[in-house]
Design a protein around this nucleic acid. Structure first.
Ligand SMILES: [Mn+2]
Ligand SMILES: [Mn+2]
Ligand SMILES: [Zn+2]
Ligand SMILES: [Zn+2]
Lengths: 120, 120
DNA sequence: CTTAAAAATGCACTTCCATTGCATTGCTCA
DNA sequence: TGAGCAATGCAATGGAAGTGCATTTTTAAG
């Protein structure tokens, strides 16, 4: 099952909600997907994305990504038209300077707008 | 009621969830708070913050803020220890460059870590 | 002042997604 | 081969957001 889920995710280029995967595999239970994604995340296979919709999305990590150890540095784009959320892995989050006393552990940057498919 | 809610929010320096305000006013219904915050947001009195916890937070807008018209430019900090989310209104979100074809409408930048109270 | 319309509030209900307990099934390896 | 562990499925729970409708309160016209 994990292999099937992994292959499905590898074939998609946008981030997926749990329900997306659920619809692609009518025969598997939500719970299995939920726990599989949790395992994947712990093992650094996928990373969870909070795009502001309130629905967690998941995407495979790039080869060489070590987001299970340190922070995930690339930004995410959420299209307000088609609803898709994509990883812009080439676009790293710039250095943020914080006020005195603040200690950064993780940075999450989400740009909302129109994606390449919807902007024309 | 709106005045009471406004004053309560003005007295706090961290962003608040709906349940936070609910606990501060035991005599008011959740729905009233919900709709009040919605009205405040539409009128540009408060702005909603998605800090990645999945729970919407609200904070008063600064004088001169026009986030009801255009995007809210400052970043937000979420403390992983005390759970508080604060506006860093002096820290503007840097310019983000996107791939060809992408059109930005809004940017949300949340830094997670330890706040000034929790980092010592 | 009286009264009708509009706005605000409260209650109950729904929906949606995340999460967990527990029983069952499947797999691995001694 | 069988015991132990991992994976799966089912059912239930919980939390938060959102909505329909009745009631109360406010506003403003006459
Ligand atoms: Mn990503
Ligand atoms: Mn803010
Ligand atoms: Zn799109
Ligand atoms: Zn803190």
């Amino acid at each position: 099952m994990r292999l099937l889920i992994y292959r499905y995710m590898a074939g998609r280029d946008a981030a997926m909600a749990l329900s997306d995967i659920e619809n692609a595999f009518t025969k598997v239970d939500r719970t299995t997907l939920y726990r599989t994604l949790k395992t994947f995340e712990e093992k650094g296979v996928v990373h969870q994305i909070e795009d502001g919709t309130g629905i967690s999305k998941y995407a495979l990590c790039e080869p060489g990504c070590n987001c299970s150890i340190e922070q995930d540095l690339h930004l995410h784009f959420h299209c307000s038209n088609c609803g898709e959320t994509v990883c812009l892995t080439e676009h790293k989050i710039p250095q943020i300077n914080l006020p005195e006393g603040y200690l950064a552990e993780d940075v999450n940057l989400v740009v909302t707008g129109l994606c390449e498919k919807c902007s024309t």
